[in-house]
Amino acid sequence: ANGLTVVQNQVLNLIKACPRPEGLNFQDLRSQLQHMPIASVKQAVDFLCNEGHIYSTVDDDHFKSTDAE
């Protein structure tokens, strides 16, 4: 419905759900999506960054969603 793939939505939802001020790090994302190939997770993160749905925070491995306050 939002124009994103299943993988992209899963990644976005996990990032949105993280309450930490620095956001979710890539390792946590990986461990929560163990069933997915790392390349697919990375691709989804790159796509979401490029589209402005998420952004990197304290370094290139931590992400927050632009939907969250």
Binding site: N50, G52, H53, Y55, S56, T66
Partner: peptide, 29 residues
């Protein structure tokens, strides 16, 4: 650990850039 002022500033800058990118992308569609 709480974020430093510098980290908070960087996060806010990146958030603004992402919001601008998102607006740009949705305008393209």
């Amino acid at each position: 650990l709480p974020l430093t002022e510098e980290q908070r500033k960087k996060i806010e800058e990146n958030r603004q850039k992402a919001l601008a990118r998102r607006a740009e992308k949705s305008a393209e569609q």
